[in-house]
């Protein structure tokens, strides 16, 4: 059970979409696939949902081989593609009934599974799916993907284009579903969502950079990070970029994360340098690495 991916490679013409991807997901785990657009997340999802065939490597989903037992996989997984893929001209209820029917079940049979989510959109059940807001569309899509009580749920960027409140609600729902024993693979470009997963894999340009729990993954960050602020953030960035000893400079909202090339880094020296560049109210503090920092560092 769970999910096993071994050395999966896939290329389209001359582009390598996936290279030697390997990871295992334990049954009941909420596993996150974190990476920017074009990292190969969707290709990996399509291989695991039997929509594409990998060039090399093997994978099993809920114990079924993606190539040989593709029919069994199609019976036992729920898939929510990145693009909203329901019938826009059908109402909420009709969409749900349709998906229940083609999976050979009824809404009533698995209602307990979708109840928490469905009650939120039920007041609009006679509204056509095309007229729903982004958050409601995602909730409906999740209901449709869950209606047949899948063993494994694939969610490809479920929160892209959804407002922050709905995003939070959506992740709360995933957490609740996890308690019902469903294994989940979720992809997202948002680093803050990564922290909500049991384990995450950082992926870029088709390669897995690191796999670990969100808490330990930041330990892979090799250098001390300093949080730099001043009266002019833009000027801070340009000045730090010109500083000969910088290792990395990344803006984080109002702050700038800075790492130094040298082992013996002196805060005072950097402070003076920034002052010379005409900056005021300078603060430089050591800070903890975030998942984003780790990703940026690993992706360098």
């Amino acid at each position: 059970m769970g999910l096993k991916v071994n050395n999966i490679s896939k290329s389209f013409k001359k582009v390598n979409a996936l290279e030697q991807v390997t990871f295992h997901i334990k049954p009941g785990e909420l596993f996150g696939l974190i990476g920017p657009d074009g990292a190969g997340k969707t290709t990996l999802f399509r291989i695991l949902t039997t929509l594409l065939i990998a060039d090399k490597g093997s994978a099993t989903v809920a114990g079924y081989d993606v190539l040989k037992d593709y029919k069994s996989i199609r019976n036992n997984v729920g898939y929510m593609p990145g693009k909203f893929s329901l019938y826009q001209d059908l109402t909420i209820e009709e969409n749900l009934t349709f998906f229940a029917t083609i999976f050979g079940t009824t809404i009533e049979e698995n209602y307990n599974l979708i109840e928490d989510i469905y009650v939120q959109i039920e007041p609009f059940k006679n509204r056509r799916a095309g007229k729903l807001s982004g958050g409601m569309k995602q909730k409906l899509a999740l209901c449709c993907a869950l209606i047949h009580k899948p063993k494994v749920l694939f969610l490809d960027e479920p929160t892209t284009g959804v407002d922050p409140v709905s995003r939070k609600e959506f992740w709360d729902m995933l957490k609740r579903l996890q308690t019902k024993g469903i294994t989940m693979l979720v992809s997202t470009p948002y680093m803050d969502e990564a922290a909500l997963c049991d384990r995450i894999a950082l992926i870029q340009e088709g390669k897995i950079l690191e796999i670990d729990t969100p808490k330990s993954i930041v330990k892979h960050y090799p250098k001390p990070i300093y949080n730099v602020t001043a009266n002019n953030t833009y000027k801070v960035i340009t000045s730090l970029n010109m500083y000969p000893f910088n290792h990395s400079v990344y803006p984080f909202g109002e702050h700038v994360h800075y790492t130094d090339k040298r082992d013996s880094f002196n805060i005072k020296e950097l402070h003076n340098y920034l002052e010379q560049n005409g900056l005021k109210n300078i603060t430089i503090q050591k800070t903890k690495a975030t998942i984003e920092d780790t990703f940026m560092e690993l992706a360098r």
């Binding site: 929509l51 029919k71 997984v77 898939y79 329901l86 998906f99 083609i102």
Partner: peptide, 12 residues
């Protein structure tokens, strides 16, 4: 519309 993707990943 991408619904074919969902139809393919279903028992139909």
């Amino acid at each position: 519309l991408g619904t074919m993707e969902i139809l393919l990943v279903s028992p139909i």
